[in-house]
Nucleic acid binder design. Structure first.
Lengths: 260, 260
DNA sequence: CGGTAAGTTGAAAAATCTCAATCACGGTGG
DNA sequence: CCACCGTGATTGAGATTTTTCAACTTACCG
């Protein structure tokens, strides 16, 4: 069942310890200590005793069918969510109907950090394919991270990493032209998929051209045209959402050589 | 000495308790407990005993002359900095010489949160006028925030608020046209100045057209033209960096009415 | 008072958007 | 099983916005 489709997260990240293939099947119970995402997620660096404590906290799993909201802008913030399987987008919307995709999240990534600021979510999180998440009650995470330095530090790092990522997106939106934006986006996507055991060159997009465009500050037609140009230039094969990167270095060069 | 110039932060935020007008003068020693910024800064919500603990931590003050770096991209991350007086910009730079201003910080705002992610700073922080900051050693802040729930929560809120702010900038960069961006920027700036006791209508910019442009994803000429248009439309008076808002509602309408 | 950095303005070029037509694909019901 | 429908993707042509390049002005600093 090893596949390159990002939708099917069946390839173990930690090969010698697949998550749920040993032990009894408990479909609504999860344990960080046996999760194959633990090296990408909140538990990084925790020792076995600490991991077990975290298991007690991250007790609830929730599945989110494709197209459904995990949470909505304005809802009360109660918990963070770690993507277990599947793929999400987050988007902010201004008073007037403007809409901006602020990120795409895959296995091991945390959703909901924006909610801490005011006890209410500031964006929508929508599953782009059938997905499941681990629920991390925020109050309990606070308590536990007062006890375990490593957990506290890791949590702070994750928040800080989100800030750094956001600054990178600002650079992209503020400085890059369409081709550079799309190239940077694709390289980021494949890098993250690769970190999860997928092919670096072959992927299926979970989002529409419009969603990519919203994220990159472009109209869907521009995204489509740019894909076509990449294909024409021999950088990649594009069949709708099925992509194959043919020249990763070429894409990288697009991002590096500031508008030349 | 009450002035509307953002450069001179002499107007007390908490009117009945000006920061340094009582007690002995200690130019290189600061105390959160007597700081007039404490309702805008890290100490929000702390009780007197906790405040005193924080005082022990935030011991060092540092002045940064105009044009100097507070820290640089790549430097080891040791501490966060709270702006005490003055005005800063932060900018990220990509491998190729691209440069993006990611924010402007004024009194009470925290600098350096991006450094937590990797123990190294990911951006430059530059003083746009003679400034001073309080140094908050990060390790000590971690320790103290394990002890005091309120401090822990406030620190998390500040990080989360930065994430929310960044998402707002993404919306601006991804969805708005030049006029809307500049209007949104000016409204944000005046709102923050007003929260610090300054006039909502009269201000002096601390940054160049180029720096505004970098932040807003526009070229300096576009920023200049847009200022001229605002002046022509009677929204504001513009004399180089000296601004007077004449029609705040008109600016707000520009931001709200999505490109109409 | 001169030199330099910052700001303004104009005109032409370039990038992106808008509008419109058409195509591809997946799901559904006959 | 296949035709049909709706959503998403592609492509073209013209409009719009922003950038680029250039000339010129203003303010500030020694």
């Amino acid at each position: 069942m090893l596949t390159t489709l990002p939708g099917a997260m069946s390839m173990p990240i930690i090969p010698d310890m697949p998550a749920r293939s040993c032990g009894p099947l408990e479909p609504l119970r999860v344990a960080c200590s046996s999760c194959n995402l633990r090296e990408l997620c909140l538990p990084v660096g925790l020792n076995p005793a600490e991991l077990q404590q975290l298991d007690g906290l991250v007790a609830k799993r929730r599945s989110v069918p494709r197209g459904e909201h995990l949470f909505r802008n304005g809802e009360r913030f109660e918990a963070l969510y770690a993507v277990r399987t599947g793929f999400f987008k987050t988007c902010v919307n201004s008073e007037d109907g403007r809409d901006q995709v602020t990120g795409f999240q895959m296995a091991g990534e945390l959703l909901g950090l924006d909610g801490i600021s005011s006890d209410h979510h500031h964006c929508d999180a929508v599953a782009l394919e059938d997905s499941s998440v681990c629920t991390i009650p925020y109050g309990q995470l606070e308590t536990l991270s007062r006890e375990f330095t490593v957990l506290q530090r890791q949590f702070h790092k994750i928040m800080s990493r989100e800030i750094v990522r956001d600054h990178g997106v600002m650079l992209l939106l503020g400085n890059m032209r369409a081709e550079e934006r799309l190239a940077a986006f694709l390289l980021n996507l494949t890098r993250r998929l690769q970190a999860r055991g997928f092919s670096a060159s072959s992927l299926v997009l979970r989002m529409t051209r419009e969603e990519i465009g919203s994220y990159l500050g472009l109209k869907l037609e521009t995204v489509s045209r740019t894909f076509s140009k990449f294909q024409h230039d021999g950088l990649m094969e594009v069949k709708q959402r099925q992509l194959r990167i043919l020249d990763q270095a070429g894409l990288q060069a697009l991002v590096n050589n500031s508008h030349c």
